[in-house]
Computed example of a mutant assay.
Amino acid sequence: MKRVIKRDGSVVEFDKERIINAIKKTFEQASKEPNMKLLEKIASQVEELPSKVLSVEEIQDIVVKKLMASSEKDIAMSYQSYRTLKTEIREKEKGIYRQIGELVDASNEKLLSENANKDAKTISVQRDLLAGISSRDYYLNKIVPKHIKLAHIKGEIHLHDLDYLLFRETNCELVNIETMLRGGCNIGNAKMLEPNSVDVAVGHIVQIIASVSSNTYGGCSIPYLDRALVRYIKKTFKKHFLRGAKYIDDLSEEQIEELKKENLEYSNEAIKNKYPKTYEYSVDMTEESVKQAMQGLEYEINSLSTVNGQTPFTTVGIGTETSWEGRLVQKYV
């Protein structure tokens, strides 16, 4: 049984009477007596085509060709003109102006709730949705080939991220956080220097996530967070150790300056044995610093809002680092 794909994507059984009636109306509008023999012939020829599935547009194309090949060329022209007019009306009804109207009137629930990361009640998100409507319309009608557009509309394929494809931006960034932290980086006109503590390093990471997410689209992945933060947890441990040496072991300024030359890290058994209380204090304070930094990282990411009104879609990778510092990050993440 031959089937027909309607414009809304639904599939119905072929009915040649629909073809006959459509051509018949064209004859009547032209004030001509319908050539029923020709109408029956064209409808039967469409029915006998080997293709089991035809779209409405394909059937109409065939009808125009058959009419043009007959003695009823004027009817073919009228049929095509009417078809074009109806297409323009449909496009206007379902096109960009209708979508904008639905956005402004908040009448399209699907449009307003299509992205769980966006609050469609905010101006920034509504502005982004408006930009997306115009970008999709332009991309589908001006850039992609017609057969690709039709396949997308029918649901045979799906063009992902149509809101942003027009701008040829990259998406789903894998951010080299270690290099950006160690070498410093620019965000806009601001130069961020290398951090000297884990809390400042996390603050930098949050700013990087916000900047990357605002200038691209899709996900933002932060790989090896635990490994990237080891360097700054060690700096934090050293700061706490020097403070403990001053207030717990009562070292003089000169002694502290000499102590700075030593390897003040968790793994150094010598300082652990020489300054046990300061060492214990540094371990506790560093652990608390990492805990607060990880709490801050989660809160900051989930409360961020990018320029398009979206909470950054962020992936954080951990688990490969085996040092004490790295395991602290894993623990508190």
Results as ranks from 00 to 15, higher is better:
184 G>V: 01
194 E>K: 06
236 T>Q: 00
40 E>H: 05
147 H>Y: 11
283 V>I: 15
23 I>D: 01
276 P>V: 11
12 V>R: 07
200 V>L: 14
148 I>H: 06
171 N>R: 15
330 Q>G: 13
330 Q>L: 09
3 R>F: 04
164 Y>I: 01
98 R>H: 08
139 Y>I: 03
282 S>I: 03
204 H>K: 06
1 M>S: 04
321 E>N: 13
221 S>F: 15
163 D>Y: 05
182 R>F: 13
324 W>P: 02
267 S>C: 01
59 I>G: 06
99 Q>L: 06
324 W>R: 03
182 R>K: 10
297 L>F: 12
85 L>A: 13
130 L>R: 05
204 H>Y: 15
179 T>Q: 11
14 F>I: 02
113 S>W: 09
55 S>I: 03
140 L>W: 08
286 T>N: 03
96 I>K: 03
234 K>T: 05
70 S>Y: 09
272 K>R: 13
220 C>A: 10
15 D>A: 11
197 S>C: 13
167 F>N: 00
110 K>S: 04
315 T>A: 12
295 Q>V: 08
289 S>I: 12
159 L>G: 07
202 V>P: 02
14 F>G: 06
59 I>Q: 04
120 A>I: 03
178 E>P: 06
190 A>W: 00
21 N>C: 05
71 S>Q: 11
296 G>T: 05
307 V>L: 15
191 K>W: 13
255 Q>E: 14
318 I>E: 01
114 E>G: 08
71 S>R: 14
136 R>V: 01
20 I>W: 03
125 V>E: 01
165 L>A: 07
299 Y>K: 14
193 L>P: 03
189 N>M: 10
260 K>H: 09
312 P>F: 13
154 K>I: 04
153 I>Q: 06
50 P>S: 11
92 K>L: 15
80 Q>M: 10
124 S>I: 11
330 Q>H: 10
78 S>I: 14
72 E>R: 12
116 A>M: 11
107 S>K: 12
41 K>E: 00
253 E>C: 05
251 L>A: 06
196 N>K: 07
68 M>H: 12
267 S>T: 10
208 I>H: 05
272 K>Y: 08
293 A>E: 06
312 P>A: 04
68 M>E: 08
202 V>Y: 08
161 D>M: 12
191 K>V: 12
95 G>M: 04
250 D>P: 00
234 K>V: 06
245 A>D: 00
128 D>S: 15
219 G>W: 09
40 E>A: 14
64 V>R: 13
154 K>C: 05
169 E>Q: 12
207 Q>D: 02
150 L>F: 04
309 G>P: 05
103 L>W: 10
73 K>E: 09
162 L>Y: 05
262 E>I: 10
210 A>H: 09
232 Y>I: 12
110 K>C: 07
294 M>P: 02
64 V>L: 09
188 G>L: 07
321 E>G: 10
324 W>A: 07
76 A>P: 01
40 E>S: 15
291 K>I: 07
124 S>M: 11
319 G>L: 14
295 Q>C: 11
253 E>T: 14
163 D>A: 07
73 K>T: 04
148 I>G: 08
317 G>N: 02
123 I>T: 06
46 V>C: 00
33 E>W: 13
12 V>I: 14
264 L>M: 00
249 D>T: 13
15 D>P: 00
64 V>I: 03
143 I>P: 06
36 M>E: 09
